[in-house]
């Protein structure tokens, strides 16, 4: 599936999943792509993509917040979960990433959760460049870090009608686990954080709704709206 298709399917699941239910899925990318946060300017995402040699791949605005993410071999996944009571996003990150940290620890991979040092500057590039608007350039609060402090996993969130959507990106090359084993660990961590979370197969109606929404995510009206 391409980048607009993945964004659309995530929004469809968020919209259509029954309240109180949890689902997760791992992406299979058709090719490299760049996604950027709901509120970020397109020009910023394009500048970051150009600087990283990814200007020629699809650049798509996500339904979630956060920074620019390069999907060039990352392990990408999404989780829809109950988020009934309005509460700080950092609590969701903490819960999700602690679950995954525990699952990795069982496999001998030691990680830590980044501390809170103020909000990340996601919307505007610092003087001289847009590096700090890129998700993996610097840890945000409650990101998952490797033993050397390098960021392993970052996420982005959307809350709608008492349900949450988490979109996560894990850099497998920064972790010594084989990719398949890493996927199993992430799934285990998600289920620890959200007991009852189910993986695919997803409801066919969600795919149909996602196909209808894919046009939006592929459009200039959506991606260049800011």
């Amino acid at each position: 599936m391409d980048a607009p298709g993945h964004m659309a399917l995530d929004e469809a699941i968020l919209e259509l999943a029954l309240p109180g239910t949890s689902f997760f899925r791992f992406y299979e990318w058709r090719g490299p792509a760049v996604t950027f946060g709901l509120a970020q300017p397109y020009a910023l995402a394009l500048a970051c993509a150009k600087a990283s040699g990814m200007a020629c791949v699809p650049i798509v605005r996500r339904p979630t917040g956060g920074g620019v993410v390069f999907h060039d071999g990352d392990l990408t996944f999404s989780v829809v979960f109950p988020w009934e009571r309005l509460s700080p996003a950092l609590q969701v990150y903490e819960r999700m990433h602690l679950g995954i940290r525990e699952a990795l620890a069982k496999r001998g991979v030691e990680t830590s959760v980044a501390g809170f040092a103020g909000p990340p500057p996601l919307l505007a590039p610092p003087a001289g460049g847009g590096e700090r608007s890129i998700c993996f350039d610097a840890p945000s609060p409650f990101d998952l870090l490797g033993g050397n402090g390098e960021k392993l996993l970052g996420g982005a969130l959307r809350r709608r009608k008492g349900q949450g959507l988490y979109q996560g990106s894990f850099r497998p090359e920064r972790c010594r686990l084989p990719r398949r084993e890493l996927e199993v660990a992430v799934a285990e961590g998600i289920c620890a954080a959200w007991p009852g979370a189910r993986p695919e197969p997803l409801d066919p109606a969600w795919f149909a709704a996602g196909e209808r929404l894919a046009e939006k995510y592929g459009s200039a009206a959506w991606n260049k709206r800011r």
Binding site: G37, A39, P63, T64, G65, A89, L157, R158, R159, R160
Partner: peptide, 13 residues
């Protein structure tokens, strides 16, 4: 829903 508020890495309808 009529809009979105974005805060620290999360968007709220």
């Amino acid at each position: 829903a009529c809009g979105v508020v974005e805060s620290v890495k999360a968007a709220f309808d």
